[in-house]
Structures are given as C-alpha cells and as structure tokens.
C-alpha cells in the first residue's frame, strides 16, 4: 500500500490524520517541522505528502513545497490550510505555491481519503 508523509507541527493533527490513513490501508511517516519533513521525503520517497502550510513560521509549508520542487521532487502534495476561508484568501496552484491540492482543516475522514486517492491515482 502507498506510503504517505504527514508534515505538521501539531501532534494531535498528525495522530488523527495518521489513524485515518492507516485505517484505510496506507502506511504513514511523519515529521513535525520542515527540516525533518524534507529529510523523510528524500530518504523514504513517499507516494504523497500531506503538508501543513503554517508551522513554526506562517509560510513554512509554502517554502518546503518550493524547496521540494526546486530539487526535482514531483511527489504530489496535499496542503493543509487553516485560515484561508477566514481571511477570504483563495489558494491556487502556482509557482509560488507548487502543490497539487488544498484542504482546509478540520477535514473529515471521507474528504481526506477522497483527496488522497484522487492524487495517488493521478500520479
């Protein structure tokens, strides 16, 4: 089954997301900061990355996504966001934000699994 990397600084979100993914047959690796996230992606080459946009810094997720693309990593990225609706900010795929899809937290298990499957089938 596919290996998915979750990179988020919130241990509760990591645990809840991991449990949902594992219950649906996925294998999971996790990191709670961009540096460790980069390392596990490079070393274990997951099939998909779930990446939080705001970690220790408000734009950690954007910069890790950019870094991955600059290094030629084409693994699909699903970005977790949390305040885009509140601020009326619409994320869109671009060079600035080189990710494949977005999902606003909190996300239901069904929506998460549907997005994950869609991205994995596409890649």
């Amino acid at each position: 089954m596919s290996l998915i990397a979750i990179i988020d600084d919130d241990p509760d979100i990591i645990d809840a997301t991991s449990l949902v993914l594992m219950a649906n047959g996925f294998e999971v690796i996790t990191a709670n900061n961009p540096g460790d996230g980069l390392k596990i992606i490079q070393e274990q080459k997951p099939a998909l990355v779930i990446l939080d946009v705001m970690m220790q810094e408000p734009d950690d997720g954007f910069f890790l996504a950019q870094k991955l693309r600059r290094e030629g990593v084409t693994t699909p990225i699903l970005m977790y966001t949390s305040v885009s609706k509140a601020l009326g900010f619409q994320f869109g795929k671009s060079d600035m934000v080189p990710v494949d899809d977005f999902v606003e937290k909190p996300v239901s298990a069904d929506v998460l699994i549907a997005k994950v499957n869609k991205l994995l089938n596409k890649s």
């Binding site: 979100i13 809840a16 449990l19 949902v20 219950a23 949390s82 909190p106 298990a109």
Partner: peptide, 25 residues
C-alpha cells in the same frame, strides 16, 4: 485565527474518529 482554529481542528479530528464506527480504536 490560526491559533484559535488549531485546537478546534484537532478536537474535531479526534471526535470524528471516535464517532466513526468504521474506525477500530
């Protein structure tokens, strides 16, 4: 907004799991 939403998102994540009969916990 981010700081306020984070605990809500985490709690909903846990409650969804607890209420989901498909999740074997």
């Amino acid at each position: 907004s981010h700081e306020l939403k984070a605990p809500v998102a985490a709690t909903i994540g846990f409650l969804d799991i607890l209420l989901n009969p498909k999740m074997k916990i």
